[in-house]
Write a protein that binds this DNA or RNA. Sequence first.
DNA 1: ATTATTACTTTTGTTTTGCAAGCAAAGATA
DNA 2: TATCTTTGCTTGCAAAACAAAAGTAATAAT
Lengths: 151, 151
Amino acid sequence: MEYKFRSECPITSALDILGDKWILVIIKLMLIQDKKTFKEFTESDEAIATNILASKLKYLEEVGIITKSQLPDNKKTNLYLLTEKGLALTPIIVELSVWSDENLREHNKIMKESPEIEIMKSDKAAFVKMKQKNYKAKIALITGLKDNSLK
Amino acid sequence: MEYKFRSECPITSALDILGDKWILVIIKLMLIQDKKTFKEFTESDEAIATNILASKLKYLEEVGIITKSQLPDNKKTNLYLLTEKGLALTPIIVELSVWSDENLREHNKIMKESPEIEIMKSDKAAFVKMKQKNYKAKIALITGLKDNSLK
DNA sequence: ATTATTACTTTTGTTTTGCAAGCAAAGATA
DNA sequence: TATCTTTGCTTGCAAAACAAAAGTAATAAT
């Protein structure tokens, strides 16, 4: 597949893929809130419309950030899982959390407080690794396969 | 000013502010490519349309990520500068660079190679501090004031 | 066999983005 | 001092993305 990029800049190119209202929210739902089926995504707090969800999931699969699969004993429910390329977005999610915690509380008064954010700040790299490891472990449980199922 | 947030989630709230095609590109132009006037922004590789640029700059000022000012001896040219809140976005820019470098080269063949990215990866926190310090130093030179001019 | 659930698609309307042109104020030039 | 150029926009219109609501097909549960 061919995608249009605005420039030779790596940052701008990343935003050509990730820079919209929903892509990183969907990644976050998968990584932090364990969402993995179409139904689960629609039930999230963000209330994404089904037509938009369908188009974004298709796009994410095309770009190689997620995979679409099924469990052997269920032909109805689809499983959407992060690939390595998708899991590699974890540091970005972490930095968005930190910036938000430190700069957005004045704008969004009802924003959730969490003790996790302090752990995150104290050692970002360790937090990223932990989240990625946890994600892979959960996937392994669900699919009944080992860690290399995502590779 | 009041802004609409989709949820209580800090990550989603960050994306309510930053999640579009242009906001983080403009931040990057300021932080990495030293752009600071309307003219300079329009001359960038990304070729942003003037109506969109004007509306995004206005929005960024409202949210407190940038300031709009003038030099004492020039009433024509406006100076757009990052605030502390804007400078705090540096880690996000860095992580976007890293992800792009490692995951987007297959999609965007003409993406720029840079030795800077290795320095960045070897110590992200140090790189972030260095960029922020450099930015403040440049601003101090331009405005003729000291480092605290942004605070 | 009937009902409910899951994963969408379709339709229609609104908002955001983009292109091209135009314009006013400030500054530079003759 | 008059006019030419630069800067920083705004306006009008077309295209694309986003959104709400309803509908549908396949599978699974009762």
